[in-house]
């Protein structure tokens, strides 16, 4: 029961943050809305026994990534008015009709328990740092190492882009 109440509260928070992100004229409000969504998602991870994932979500997403976004928004200016007119006249009503159909489909499907699978036999999944870490360095060792390679490539690429000048010269 408590879980359901928490879910409803934070689902509303997450949806509010997401809609704010999409609709806000000011990009700073968009970034803050996404931050609210990320915090709400961390609550859902905890309610699904993903404690370590929740901590990573808050530190990496709500902390590092959103700070980076806010820095870039401040760098490239926040007061640019955005043109919201559509070039295709029928696009918006058609999109609304399709959205209504899709939402109805999702809600109807969600109202019936259509998820099947080999459900957990009593013992819940363990989401502590210890359990996740031992799995990460055991079963998922190769993907984990590939992730390290990916991060190094991303960091090197970012530095290379930062050094790039318009005339093609390095420095």
């Amino acid at each position: 029961m408590v879980e359901l109440v928490l879910f409803v509260i934070f689902a509303i928070c997450a949806l509010f943050g997401a809609v704010t992100m999409v609709w806000a004229r000011n990009p700073v409000y968009s970034a803050l809305g996404l931050m609210l969504t990320m915090f709400s998602l961390a609550v859902f991870y905890v309610s699904n026994a993903g404690h370590f994932v929740a901590v990573v979500q808050v530190i990496v997403y709500a902390g590092a990534v959103m700070t980076l976004f806010l820095f870039v928004i401040m760098l490239i200016g926040v007061d640019k008015a955005e043109d919201r007119s559509e070039t295709l006249p029928l696009q918006r009503p058609a999109a609304l009709v399709l959205l209504a159909l899709f939402a109805a489909g999702v809600l109807v499907a969600g109202a019936r328990a259509w998820t099947t699978g080999y459900t957990a036999p009593g013992e819940a999944v363990n989401g502590t740092i210890e359990a996740i870490g031992s799995r990460l360095f055991d079963t998922w060792l190769l993907p984990f190492e590939v992730t390290a390679l990916l991060l190094i490539i991303a960091a090197a690429g970012t530095i290379a882009l930062a050094f790039f000048r318009g005339d093609g010269e390095e420095g």
């Binding site: 989401g127 996740i132 998922w140």
Partner: peptide, 24 residues
Amino acid sequence: GAFVDDAAAAGQVFALFVITVAAA
């Protein structure tokens, strides 16, 4: 990951990988 029998913690580990890819 919490719903099915997830002995390898695949759901949460893959969520971690998605977060890493998103950061990169």
